[in-house]
Amino acid sequence: MASLDDLKKRISSVKSTQKITKAMKMVAAAKLRKAQENAERGRPYSKKMSNIILNLSNGITDAENAPKLLTGTGQDKVHLCIVMTADRGLCGGFNSNIIKKAKAFFHKISKSGKELKIITVGSKGYDQLKRLYKSKIIERISFKESKNANFFDADKVGKIIIDKFEKKEFDVCTIFYNQFKNVITQIPQEQQIIPLITNEEKDKPSEENYEFEPDEDEILANLLPKNISTQIFKAMLENSASEQGSRMSAMDNATRNAGEMVDKLTIKYNRSRQAAITKELIEIISGAESL
């Protein structure tokens, strides 16, 4: 059995760990509120953007000359996957959930004989994917320096994607990120951004007869690259809210576990102390009796 001294040390070490996890939980909670606000404020833009694009694509009559970003290259050979994760760990299953989802998708792609290319955004994603898919990763992006998700960063990623698309380096582009539902639940998402699928909504005829200036095609050609950045930005916002939420609940659990552990160890400590005292008493009494 561990000596009293060992137990004491153990208790104090668990207690200091508990302090750290508690502090991390507080920080995450504060950041979460902000990230959630940001995510909320970012929604009108992306919603309006997809609305306008929907209206525009309904107006397109000549499908053959429509921008490639909307309709695709007509092929389905090379898949580009953007895996968006956090730059920091200690946030429960946040990163591994995205990776799990992405890996399942990668598996499907390679099984069907298509070519796979990966861009990782956030360093944790790269760390987890490099063992299996190192040769497939064509670019790794990390925004460690940026405090909050900002549109400038998203635009950078968007430009890289567009650039690669124009060079015909891939046919289909999918992004992976966590959708923030609430603090306990984040749902890993895969979302195809090139070509943009609007099939589910396409049946709805547009209620308004818009005037376009210049024509639809030209507006779309200008708008679609922006939409890519917008989608990336949306994913970044959702991700950062999810990351903080996930970290908060993970740290909450850790704090609780540490508390339980301290309780158990304290009981053990008290018992051993009591046992030692009893032993000494018995020794004294039996010594006295034998006289």
Partner: peptide, 14 residues
């Protein structure tokens, strides 16, 4: 430049 007043016809431009 494009001036917009009330009851303009629905329009999209950039």
């Amino acid at each position: 430049y494009m001036g917009i007043l009330k009851d303009h016809t629905p329009i999209i431009s950039f």
